[in-house]
């Protein structure tokens, strides 16, 4: 699957994820994409190495007296048994499973009109992560962005003014992009999307609904 991914994360997003400066909703979406994409996993590893090199070259600040002993004392306590890693069994990457609380069948969808459904995931409020369900052939209303929007395709595919996006592909949209994502006719499309500012819809009705729907 990973060979088919055409749309990847930008250097600045990978670097910010590695540095740990992004909101939780972005971290989740990036972690989900990296779970599906070996290319970005390798690039992330390189940025982590950069962080390692910075720690290595970082100015030392002396530890408190008795610090080492305090740590050794703590290590005497029995360890928690190691957890078995969780692997996805299909289209929901493990980090996303944690937020859904299971697979896609555990998602509590809410209709936002014209067959499109969404589910907001519990993250910190500085950005929003949502699952989007777009029925085959349907469109998400034309919208622009005040901040950055990441859209990761989990299932099916969509096309917009930019390109065609299939499973594992991630679209990075910013203020310059107004787009109308349309799901391909063959299959319903499910995406994970993160936004750091409310979307701007062009039509009147979605704009009125916006405060209630948190989109």
């Amino acid at each position: 699957m990973t060979e088919q991914i055409k749309h990847h994360l930008t250097d600045s997003l990978l670097m910010a994820y590695s540095a740990g400066s992004l909101p939780e909703a972005f971290n989740l979406t990036i972690a989900a994409h990296v779970s599906m994409c070996d290319e970005c996993r390798a690039r992330l590893g390189a940025f982590d190495s950069l962080g390692g090199a910075l720690v290595e070259g970082s100015e030392s600040v002396e530890m408190s007296a008795g610090s080492l002993e305090a740590v050794m004392e703590r290590l005497k306590a029995p360890e928690r048994p190691a957890e078995k890693p969780i692997y996805s069994n299909g289209i929901v990457p493990a980090p996303l499973r944690d937020y859904i609380g299971g697979d896609l069948d555990a998602v509590r969808w809410k209709s936002i009109g014209m067959g499109v459904k969404q589910a907001i995931l519990p993250t910190s409020r500085d950005a929003t992560a949502r699952l989007l369900f777009i029925p085959a052939g349907a469109a998400v209303p034309d919208h622009g962005h005040r901040g950055t929007e990441l859209t990761l395709v989990l299932k099916g595919s969509f096309a917009d003014e930019v390109d065609h996006f299939g499973p594992g592909d991630i679209e990075v949209a910013n203020e310059d992009l107004n787009h109308t994502p349309v799901a391909d006719i063959g299959e319903d499309c499910i995406c994970l999307a993160a936004t750091d500012a409310p979307l701007k819809f062009k039509g009147l009705i979605p704009r009125l609904a916006q405060p209630f729907l948190r989109i």
Binding site: S18, A19, G20, E24, N27, L28, A31, A32, V34, S35, R41, L44, D48, G51, G52, L54, V55, P85, I86, Y87, S88, P93, A94, P95, L96, D98, Y99, S124
Partner: peptide, 23 residues
């Protein structure tokens, strides 16, 4: 060690967990 420290930092300073990629 950087990655452990970074995660601890996010946890302590922002009271957030950091989603990690699937292994």
């Amino acid at each position: 060690i950087f990655t452990i420290a970074r995660n601890r930092k996010i946890d302590a300073l922002r009271k957030q967990k950091r989603p990690e990629p699937e292994d």
